[in-house]
Nucleic acid binder design. Structure first.
Lengths: 234, 234
DNA sequence: CGGGATCCGTTACGATACTG
DNA sequence: CAGTATCGTAACGGATCCCG
């Protein structure tokens, strides 16, 4: 893509990550190092041709890095650089705005708890409001249980329960998204028992997920493996 | 542009504002209502054909609005809707990241004080840290004087001086940008007199324009410099 | 002169097939 | 698994023209 050719920080950013698919590739890498095929699976419609173009361009510009045996094809892994990690505030503000443009999750088929968590919680965290020690959350969504640790820009998620969590939340997958979309009133839903929320850090939890997205003070990288999560949730 | 077709808030946002030029058009409208020709002048390389396409698309999606005599061609004005105004955090996080990808302003010809202000200050405001009454700033840049009022997402700017300003800043146009790029250490520059900063709300000013977007290369450097600066200013 | 519309060459993208 | 090669289509960029 041609450069905008303006001495403007927004244009400069778009020159680097403004092309089609680039930010979605970066979204995938924000979940941890990914291989070529992982990204392809996550982004149907993106041709291998174009993917390798984007990967090479982002690599040249220092946003991502290709790791693995130099010449050989197998075992190549792509990961965010420090500069790429600083893109997380952009992903967050985009997610915060974009969730209102998503349809009601009730219309989505095969809407799994994990999909709901990623949609509603993974990029909407105002993590600058997190207490230094983080928040341990125990989730029950459509009967499935998860442990979530909020201590950085991207939550850490695993299956299983946590009796000592700081916050316990029981909610349906669809309502979790509706809540972030502003489609349901939290106070009402709590009173009617449609949502169950308790624990010692409920206030902090609501603050973290309640404020408008804005650039964060200090982006930090939380490297985790989404593969482990996928394996467990299946 | 084809939709990404994912039930993901980031993809949904990019479906609306991810096309080429869209965010730069929105950047222009963030400075206030603009006419067709204003936008064309601000964005060389954008053909009228494509501009009207984008304007209509953004209008359909509720991000901007066309105001003016319904049928008549003259006097058409484009403006951000409420939804479009909520895109400002995205512009800000983009600007904070992108400024580090701009070259040193010393290499730019015809780099005016106004250009420096727009580059360095117009999209980097962490306005959630603003005191409710705002901050009145008096700027002297390369000998030219400006009054700037920070009381919302986009600063209000005029020529002239203000003896009763809350903050007074004297700096060169190039250094203003370098400061936001993390290329100069503020504490040093203040001590040497290269930058002059005074007034009753210096702390708030520095917080609003704080160093959250540290350069990717040496984040600790910028963090230390702001700490030293705060220590000095007390 | 402001606010577009039309036309057209070039580039970027999307889908499929193929390979080390 | 990690790409490469090919090719039809859609999007973009530039120029020109039109209309109030």
């Amino acid at each position: 893509m041609k450069s905008y050719g303006q001495y403007c920080p927004i244009a400069a950013a778009l020159d680097v990550i403004g092309e089609r698919w680039s930010l979605l590739i970066i979204r995938e890498l924000s979940f941890g190092p990914q291989r070529f095929t992982d990204i392809r699976r996550a982004l149907p419609g993106l041709s291998p041709n174009l993917l390798i173009d984007r990967l090479r361009l982002l690599d040249e510009q220092g946003v991502i890095e290709r790791r693995g045996d130099a010449g050989m094809s197998s075992r190549a892994v792509y990961t965010l650089t420090a500069s790429g990690t600083e893109l997380l505030p952009i992903l967050q503000s985009l997610a915060q705005w974009g969730i209102h443009h998503l349809p009601d999750p009730g219309e989505i088929l095969n809407f799994s708890p994990v999909a709901a968590i990623r949609t509603a919680l993974f990029n909407g965290v105002a993590y600058r409001f997190l207490p230094p020690e983080g928040i341990r959350v125990s989730l029950e969504i459509d009967g499935m249980r998860f442990r979530m640790l909020l201590n950085g820009p991207v939550p850490w998620l695993r299956g299983g329960s946590d009796e000592n969590a700081d916050v316990k939340l029981k909610i349906s997958a669809a309502d979790l998204v509706r809540w972030r979309q502003g489609r349901i009133l939290v106070g009402e839903a709590l009173q009617s028992g449609r949502i169950e929320l308790s624990g010692s850090k409920v206030e902090a939890f609501l603050e973290v997920f309640g404020f408008q997205a804005a650039p964060a003070k200090r982006p930090e990288l939380a490297i985790r493996s989404i593969a482990a999560l996928k394996a467990e949730s299946n």
